[in-house]
Write a protein that binds this DNA or RNA. Structure first.
Length: 567
RNA sequence: UGGGGUGUGGUGCAAUGGUAGCACACCGGCCUUUGGAGCCGAGAAUGGAGGUUCGAAUCCUCCCGCCCCAGCCA
């Protein structure tokens, strides 16, 4: 029936719906911790969960798993919501917080204590770890011998109840006591060796205020939160596979609705880091200009850089859903982006590194306007007028005095097309005292108005240009990968990933010359600067001073040839 | 001689016992008023060894590689 094959998660859900599991209902969720900004790795999870809910006529929740007040912040909550909406995910009115379930979680904890399935433990963090059992290396193998029972494991229900109440009441300092599930200290899965359910944290919560001084661990909160929301399929990443038996155990002990957890491999991209810890470090230490720095692979950064939701959606679609850990080449994202922008970005001419050109045989004060196509991929976008006059700017790299064979562009004596304007031939090169080229003299063919060759003669190159007297100045921020290595974490023993930061990741170009139609460009607008790439107006841009970000270059044959020659 | 996962061209994903296919990347060509876009073509893969079968990426056995787990992080 369906032409494309389903990924394994959709296959499972299709089967569940067919069997009438959960009454045929599908309900998913995205459960971020608000301890940083959303990045492109999260996007996959959001789009997967939201997409499934939509495809199966189900519902999709947003829930913040805010169980650690020491790391979380309202700023991150707001950012997640903004970024998710931008990406196209819609949770309607279902915005939830684990913190809103703290009361129920507390009651459930008491229930487990009464059932003899949980106890208050006085062991320190180090002791708990020690009792849990140390991994031992035997040859190449790692063995985890059974752990030891905590000496507090057999406290009476009454004592546990009393202690737990006093933990909540604030009688004990941080770290002095925990509530632990009583499972099995010899279990081969370390998560089942009496995991901590509550820890004492005398820290107010960004949402719950100072109501609590004990906080549930993620493991104790997560599964039940899904259960409370009647989630049918709890989709999460691979590293939680080991936790599933624990979530199952909690749910079964409590006898409450049991969502099915399914794990998939998170999205990884070359030249990026997806760890919120490292992203936070980049921001806090000032290696980038903030969470929305266009070099960051946060959603906010990508948006500011000029990436579109459609490109990210397409990437996610193309990379699929599997359990194999893989690293997607960044080039695929760029391909998706160019595909999208090519269809919708209005074209414009902009000279980033200007070289002055005088058209010697053009009348001194004459100005004429040529028609330029706004988007050759979408003729309904119409045309615009571009002014032309005797003094122009062209791109410095479009001229070479002694060109190699492969160089098609302007050179002494050579004729090229000035896009939409005319054919022009270089007659003279003007240099300053140091030998630097400061200006070119050209002559144009009056019969070639609009750029058409009157006799059908061919020129090998078409250059973009801007009329000097009509040009508007702009700042252009040229970006490259933030890291020089495909795997930014690939560093020598003891060195930091910061060593792999690309010193050229941002180059600010001042005095760029833009065609006048760009004067009205608004923050967030996308353009293709012909022959240069896709650019986006930065939020810092003002009508007095335009600022553009280079989103991505065009595919560039010439750059490839040059690269090949250098070898 | 712990537990849980996972191995298909360079990369990502398909093929669910029956011709190993698609995309990106790379290379070559065509076309072009963007060295863009588009079009055409080439090269390139089932971790290994056995076994079952007329037939194996797929089923079985053993081996090997890689990832996750020893937070009172998520």
């Amino acid at each position: 029936m369906s032409e494309a094959s389903l990924d394994f998660i959709r296959e499972i859900i299709t089967e569940d719906v067919k069997k009438g599991k959960n009454g045929g209902r599908v309900h998913t969720r995205f459960p971020p911790e608000p301890n940083g900004y959303m990045h492109i790795g999260h996007a996959k999870s959001v789009l997967l969960n939201y997409g499934i809910a939509k495809e199966f006529n189900g519902k999709f929740n947003l829930r913040f798993d805010d169980t650690n007040p020491e790391k979380e912040d309202q700023e991150y909550v707001d950012a997640f919501k903004r970024d998710m909406h931008w990406l196209g995910a819609d949770w309607e009115d279902r915005e939830f917080y684990a913190a809103d379930y703290f009361d129920r979680l507390y009651d459930w904890a008491e229930q487990l204590i009464r059932a003899g399935k949980a106890y208050v433990c006085d062991l320190s963090s180090e002791e708990i770890s020690e009792y849990r059992g140390k991994a031992v290396k035997v040859g190449d193998k790692i063995i985890t011998p059974p752990g030891k029972d905590s000496p507090y494991r057999n406290r009476s229900v009454e004592e546990n109840l009393d202690l737990f109440l006093r933990m909540r009441a604030g009688e004990f300092p941080n770290g002095s006591k925990t509530l632990r599930a009583k499972i099995d200290m010899a279990h081969p899965n370390l998560n089942m060796r009496d995991p901590v359910m509550y820890r004492i944290l005398h820290t107010p919560h960004q949402r719950a205020g100072d109501k609590w001084c004990i906080y549930p661990t993620y493991d104790w909160a997560h599964g039940q939160s899904d259960s409370i929301e009647e989630i049918t399929h709890s989709i999460c990443t691979l590293e939680f596979e080991n936790h599933r038996p624990l979530y199952d155990w909690y749910l079964d002990q409590l006898g409450i609705h049991h969502p099915q957890q399914i794990e998939f491999a998170r999205l990884r991209l070359t030249y990026t880091v997806m760890s919120k810890r490292l992203l936070l470090q980049l921001v806090q230490e000032g290696h980038v200009r903030g969470w929305d720095d266009p070099r960051m692979h946060t959603i906010a950064g990508l948006r500011r850089r000029g990436y579109t939701p459609e490109a990210i959606q397409e990437l996610v679609k193309r990379t699929g859903v599997t359990k194999t850990e893989s690293i997607v080449e960044f080039e695929l994202l760029e391909y998706c982006l160019r595909q999208d922008l090519n269809k919708r970005a209005q074209r414009a001419m902009a000279v980033l590194d200007p070289l002055k050109v005088t058209i010697a045989n053009y009348p001194d004060n004459q100005v004429e306007e040529f028609d330029a196509v706004n988007n050759p991929e979408d003729l309904s976008a119409g045309t615009r007028k571009v002014p032309f006059s005797k003094m122009l700017y062209i791109e410095r790299e479009d001229f070479m005095e002694n060109p190699p064979k492969d160089f098609f562009r302007l050179a002494p004596g050579r004729e090229v097309r000035l896009r939409y304007a005319c054919l022009a031939r270089c007659t003279n090169v003007v240099k300053d005292a140091s030998g630097k080229i400061v200006e070119l003299h050209c002559t144009f063919d009056p019969a070639s108005r609009g750029g058409e060759a009157p006799d059908g003669r061919k020129v090998k190159a078409t250059l973009h240009w801007v009329s000097a007297k009509h040009a508007i100045d702009a700042e252009v921020r040229r970006y490259e990968h933030l890291f020089t290595k495909e795997d930014p974490l690939d560093v020598e023993e003891g060195k930091s990933f910061l060593e792999n930061i690309n010193p050229n990741s941002l180059i600010v170009l001042q005095g760029c010359k833009l065609e006048p139609s760009l004067a009205s460009a608004k923050s967030g607008d996308h353009f293709q600067f012909e022959r240069k790439g896709y650019f986006c107006v930065d939020p810092e841009s003002t009508s007095g001073k335009l600022v553009f970000n280079r989103t991505v270059t065009l595919r560039d044959e010439w750059a490839k040839i040059q690269k090949g020659q250098k070898k």
